[in-house]
Write a protein that binds this DNA or RNA. Structure first.
Lengths: 195, 195
DNA sequence: TAGATTGTTAATCGATTAACAATC
DNA sequence: TAGATTGTTAATCGATTAACAATC
């Protein structure tokens, strides 16, 4: 909306755009504070700024990526880490042919140096883009080395991590299976809403 | 569990592994039918098979991918479409340098031929891995050409599609921001009761 | 049979929606 | 002031948890 130059919006309009009720918009915002003004609605730039603050888009967490394969390439070339409050420092891999090279300006280091690097640079987040069967092992190594969070992009579920390290997983297969389910006969008796 | 050779499991054990109550496991399964046996629990291979059936892992939906960039490379090289009940037929792009080549055996065609291809091959699903600002346009073109579902992997939200075409979106930025939020101060006061 | 564990109903809890007074 | 729309409380709804009879 900001890009479109919209300055003012009501909970009703936001709800309509998102497929939610106006009540829900107001209730949810008010979990974090009163961002609006009676009789007016919400000021778009101000609202965006406050939400950005809550989501931590302004802070900077440092991150490294483990597994410098195709997925890592895709992220390093296209994903706007800066917009998510994340600064990407380095990538790690085991292949001698890629170690020492760089992707989109990010250097690739050998996986054996992971722990040292995490400690020396106080890395906050480890991003997992490696083969699923190595995900748990690497997550634990990173957690023990002192990261605060793990962004798991493999299709493997991770067990709880030591030291209260947080895990956020994103399973492509879950998402595709969800679509598949709604396209299948199995869901036919359900309603016809889409998200 | 199947890979580990486990044959029998109780709702209690499943719940413990997933961080849910046994009640929830049983309630949820029973939305789709009674898969267990009193006094025994659930037979792992049988349960897996029944869940696979419900999720449509056995059927085959055809799919094409729009945007043959790094993300498409990552998917075509590593993602097990077959395990999700999806058969990937082709990729589409606008760059003359990639049109006519192929990735992991999947041919890349020119985006102008998208509608024709969808109709001729009765494509079920379109996968969007293109720049965000083109996502909506391409989604609509695909929907109008007759696909049944759209798997949106861009960071752009899609409006409701024509013809009741379903949309399943996967936003990497949402996921990373979620992690960021839990790592930030903003979530620190979360569990504290106040006024 | 005795023990275990489901399927299912009832109780509890939390989240969404509706309503409206406050107020810009 | 009059109209609009929030913040917030109360009502409703749905989802989770607890309990237990059925039964393997």
């Amino acid at each position: 909306m900001m890009e479109a130059g919209v300055v003012r919006v009501s909970s009703n309009e936001i709800g309509a755009q998102m497929g939610l009720t106006a009540s829900q918009i107001r209730q949810d915002f008010n979990c974090f504070g009163g961002f609006g003004q009676q009789g007016y609605g919400y000021n778009v730039p101000k609202l965006r700024d406050q939400l950005a603050e809550i989501l931590g888009m302004h802070q900077t967490n440092t991150a490294v990526i483990v597994g410098a394969g195709h997925f890592a390439h895709a992220l390093l070339h296209n994903f706007k880490f800066g917009n998510c409050g994340v600064q990407l420092l380095a990538a790690f891999d085991i292949l001698p042919t890629v170690v020492g090279t760089s992707i989109a300006g990010v250097p690739i280091r050998h996986i054996d140096t992971l722990e040292d690097y995490i400690q020396k640079h106080e890395v906050d987040i480890v991003i997992l883009t490696l083969p699923s069967n190595k995900a748990e092992e690497m997550a634990k190594r990173a957690a023990n080395a002192g990261v605060r969070g793990i962004w798991n992009l493999t299709n493997e579920a991770l067990p709880p991590m030591p030291n209260g390290v947080l895990t956020e997983s994103m399973h492509l297969s879950d998402s595709l299976l969800t679509l598949n389910y709604y396209l299948s006969d199995a869901s036919e008796s359900e309603n016809t809403e889409e998200n």
